[in-house]
Computed example of a mutant assay.
Amino acid sequence: MDGRNGGPGGAALVNEDVAHNARVWNYWLGGKDYYAVDRQVGDHVVGVYPAIREVARADRAFLGRAVRYLVREAGIRQFLDIGTGLPTAENTHEVAQRIAPESRVVYVDNDPVVLAHARALLVGSPEGATDYVDADAHDPEAILRAAEGTLDFTRPVAIMLLGILNFVSETDRARAIVRRLLEAVPSGSHLAVTHPTLELGGEANAEAMRFWNEHATPPITARSRAEFASFFAGTELLEPGIVSCAHWRHATEGNGAGEPPEVAQFGAVGRKP
């Protein structure tokens, strides 16, 4: 399973009787923004697939490493982060603006709880800009229209799709969403994606996903390496390519000689030539 995010769709009102991915993810990360049903479902999933907490932490750490690379090495100063999720520590704008205060970040989600927290807590630096878009990940046109008030699409943009495409059930549609987003940004832009898989030792995740799809929302889909790779069509994959998100450029930040445990979550970053 995966998902720091609120998912691509959702009701306009909060349903406290059905577990929601954004809140369960917050629970797994040690946050406080969840209901009893989220804890119950989260605990059951952990019982079936104990590694899910490691997946949550690895995905969050990947975000930090990717953003630091994009700002320091690639010179990116604009981020379109789709699937914001409930704010925790080291959000995209915090990581980027700590290095380059002029960085501009647009968060996208359409879960009302996520948006309420985002507007209250995700305050950016005065030199840069931080904005929030209420939009569905299935509708890239709406996302792009809303984001153009903050981002300059004639300059490179980093598109962040961490734990969100797994909520788009049809792979062809997920590819089309990514393709449209990449069409809107110029050469030098980057795409960062994480996604759950039943490969990389994630076989036990299958039962957890079945339980999730029966008891929580939104439903989730795992994908193979080949399906994940297809999202990067038209981009140049950065080293080390497609790996467990826990291993992506882990050693480059002086994190010690040993790699952390592999998690069943792909991670990669590509550059638009």
Results as ranks from 00 to 15, higher is better:
residue 44 H to T: 15
residue 60 R to I: 05
residue 71 V to E: 01
residue 115 L to A: 08
residue 75 G to T: 10
residue 89 A to H: 11
residue 70 L to Q: 09
residue 60 R to T: 09
residue 96 A to S: 02
residue 93 H to L: 02
residue 41 V to D: 00
residue 116 A to C: 06
residue 64 G to Y: 08
residue 92 T to L: 05
residue 95 V to R: 00
residue 59 D to A: 14
residue 78 Q to R: 04
residue 81 D to C: 06
residue 104 R to K: 14
residue 56 A to D: 06
residue 112 P to N: 12
residue 86 L to G: 01
residue 54 E to G: 15
residue 58 A to L: 03
residue 53 R to E: 10
residue 63 L to R: 11
residue 99 I to D: 09
residue 90 E to Q: 12
residue 92 T to R: 03
residue 114 V to N: 04
residue 116 A to R: 15
residue 73 E to V: 15
residue 106 V to C: 03
residue 64 G to T: 15
residue 102 E to W: 11
residue 61 A to N: 13
residue 38 D to F: 07
residue 95 V to Q: 00
residue 107 Y to R: 03
residue 74 A to K: 11
residue 39 R to G: 08
residue 116 A to D: 14
residue 45 V to M: 14
residue 49 Y to W: 14
residue 63 L to N: 07
residue 86 L to S: 05
residue 43 D to G: 06
residue 74 A to W: 09
residue 77 R to I: 07
residue 40 Q to L: 12
residue 47 G to S: 09
residue 102 E to I: 15
residue 84 T to Y: 01
residue 105 V to E: 00
residue 58 A to Y: 01
residue 106 V to G: 02
residue 71 V to T: 13
residue 67 V to D: 00
residue 50 P to I: 01
residue 36 A to Y: 03
residue 99 I to C: 10
residue 56 A to K: 02
residue 79 F to S: 01
residue 78 Q to S: 05
residue 114 V to C: 00
residue 50 P to Q: 10
residue 68 R to E: 15
residue 87 P to E: 10
residue 42 G to Y: 02
residue 39 R to K: 13
residue 86 L to C: 05
residue 107 Y to K: 05
residue 117 H to N: 10
residue 104 R to M: 06
residue 63 L to Y: 06
residue 58 A to V: 09
residue 32 K to A: 10
residue 38 D to S: 09
residue 46 V to T: 12
residue 105 V to S: 00
residue 69 Y to W: 15
residue 97 Q to V: 07
residue 41 V to M: 06
residue 103 S to N: 09
residue 68 R to C: 11
residue 36 A to H: 09
residue 78 Q to Y: 01
residue 78 Q to N: 04
residue 31 G to D: 10
residue 114 V to D: 04
residue 47 G to I: 03
residue 40 Q to H: 11
residue 40 Q to R: 13
residue 38 D to C: 13
residue 50 P to W: 07
residue 110 N to C: 14
residue 63 L to D: 01
residue 106 V to N: 00
residue 107 Y to S: 06
residue 108 V to M: 09
residue 82 I to S: 02
residue 50 P to R: 06
residue 102 E to K: 12
residue 87 P to N: 08
residue 88 T to H: 08
residue 48 V to W: 02
residue 39 R to D: 01
residue 78 Q to G: 03
residue 105 V to Y: 05
residue 103 S to C: 15
residue 102 E to M: 12
residue 117 H to F: 08
residue 53 R to C: 14
residue 100 A to S: 11
residue 63 L to S: 05
residue 93 H to Y: 08
residue 68 R to L: 12
residue 80 L to V: 12
residue 105 V to I: 14
residue 82 I to C: 12
residue 37 V to R: 11
residue 100 A to P: 05
residue 52 I to K: 02
residue 97 Q to F: 01
residue 72 R to I: 12
residue 60 R to F: 01
residue 74 A to D: 10
residue 83 G to K: 05
residue 80 L to K: 03
residue 101 P to V: 10
residue 55 V to K: 05
residue 43 D to S: 13
residue 102 E to P: 11
residue 51 A to H: 07
residue 77 R to W: 08
residue 79 F to L: 03
residue 86 L to P: 02
residue 66 A to N: 06
residue 98 R to C: 09
residue 47 G to W: 05
residue 50 P to A: 11
residue 59 D to M: 04
residue 77 R to G: 14
residue 95 V to A: 04
